[in-house]
Amino acid sequence: MELLLSAKIVLAAAIGAALELDAYFIGMTLVSQPIIAGGIAGWIFGDFFTGIFIGSLVQLVWISPPVGAYVPPSSSAIAYTATVLCLNMNVLFVHKEFDALIMFGLVIGTATGYFVGQADIWNRKLNTLILHLFEPAILKGGIWPVLAAQAFALAAKFFRDAVFYFIVFAFGTGIAAKIFSSLPPDILKGLEKALWVMPVIGLAVIYETFRTRMGEMLHIALFLVFYLVFWKFRHVEPVFFMLAAAAACGVVIYNFVWNKRSR
């Protein structure tokens, strides 16, 4: 079994664990989101483009909020793991089928994301034990037992994720690379096609997340207008695009949502 051990792997494991804290436990400022996690992983391993690409795909697909008591996979872990594995597998075994490699990385990343999400349940159970341990001292009124309980909870979450990421990156990369190398060409072709489908899944998820009747009409209108504009002019100027889309949305919202109420 090939062990991939380097300072970058240790750094990646630590940064990944730190990012996971923002996902739910500290702040929830969106710093841990896939578009950032993927970019950071790509930066660590020298391929920013792939990291951003994977992060964007994962962000699109896993953008909607979880429903009820369902514990979703950690989208941050999916993007981060997929990027790290993909880039390290590409270094170990240089592949022509890079699209298939990205998709394979995403499949493993999804499994990792599920594990991280489920492992958060274990941390919450551990926090219940921590609460019972420190509660008698907390009820005496001091701040230090509270700080200690919080520190224990933080350390448990961080070290769990750091160790898990380290194991996956150090040991998992070699195993994954061997599996990928042994896949028949038809499966590689299928993985390439699946990567093409991923943005479609993401667009559909967002459509369902934001769907309203008025929104659907605006969606179709802007789709047709921009499709024709880009068919005619071929080039996208991002600033113009954003301003035009924002203006169109603003006009519709002002007239049909807010102004409608005040009539």
């Binding site: 667009l203 309203t212 209108a221 802007l222 921009f226």
Partner: peptide, 27 residues
């Protein structure tokens, strides 16, 4: 109204992004 505004704006931006994706993607 705030939620409706966000959803309508989201759908609008999505329509525009989808157009760009379809035009530029090497299918």
């Amino acid at each position: 109204d705030i939620m409706k505004s966000l959803k309508v704006a989201g759908m609008g931006f999505l329509g525009a992004f989808t157009a760009v994706y379809l035009r530029e993607k090497q299918l």
